[in-house]
Nucleic acid binder design. Structure first.
Lengths: 138, 138
DNA sequence: CTGAACCCTGTAGCAACTACAAGGTCAACA
DNA sequence: TGTTGACCTTGTAGTTGCTACAGGGTTCAG
């Protein structure tokens, strides 16, 4: 009925490389598929859908364990989605924290690049690392 | 002449934990110090300065190998600082790339949180992961 | 003299892959 | 028919920057 894929076909179709697919199987994120008579993995459309779910979750920065939870929720539509929402909130807070850290780095780095000093002697970057309190707000 | 520190004193003084200091020594980032008669590492002020340099570099997001290069430059003030500058630029570009990725994640997540659907059936997050092309610009 | 708080080395774990090595399978082409 | 090349399999080790032991030695205070 539904088309069967080899691991590399599944990979191409869902944008995940085959080694990563095997890794997801090892870690229990993706169920082990049936095997062809030669031992090759055979995937169906449902596996593709699941893998795309995983890829999108990764693109949003969710970790493997978080995605496992989300997959469980997706499999049980009658469950409350409060858990998914709190997971998303928690994750959003982390993302915002990382953004803040990176913005602080960017600000300092922006001030440091474009140094015209010929030698490292008075290089802005080196001086900053060497003695100044580069991240102070004073 | 200059005060000697144990590894934990050095750690407290420079804000790096002792296990990390040993790790930096193993990877060649921090030179192996002299040893006391009991085999304990003995650090001097110079080591503290070097370690603070490393910590600041890490706070700016530089990798270990990059910091090794920067330390080399700091040790040779007569060298051209062009290398430091190009390293900083390259790193800044990476930081900006990561910021862009995280901002995109944040935008999507912001739209997804606060889902009021009682069940996972129509949960915004689950639906997004499940079938929608969450990152499309269409 | 006993216990806490250090120190040492070496190894293993984390996240999320990625990259082999060493072999088996299969389809196409000469 | 042979052989080439692209796939598939498993298992293991590497990546980055630490962190966390285990299993021992040392030092110091009470």
């Amino acid at each position: 009925m539904s088309k069967a894929f080899t691991i590399s076909e599944l990979g191409r179709e869902s944008g995940v490389n085959p080694e990563t697919i095997r890794y997801y199987e090892r870690t229990g994120l993706l169920a082990a598929p049936t095997r062809a008579s030669n031992g090759y993995r055979r995937y169906d459309e449902a596996a593709g859908k699941r893998l795309r779910f995983i890829r999108r979750g990764r693109e949003l920065g969710f970790g493997i364990e978080e995605i496992k939870t989300l997959l469980q929720l997706a499999d049980h539509p009658e469950q409350e989605c409060r858990e998914a929402d709190s997971l998303a909130r928690k994750h959003l807070a982390e993302v915002e924290g990382r953004i803040a850290d990176l913005l602080a780095m960017r600000d300092v780095l922006t001030r440091l690049v474009g140094c015209q000093s010929g030698t490292a002697e008075h290089c802005r970057l080196i001086e900053t690392l060497d003695q100044r309190n580069c991240c102070a707000d004073s």
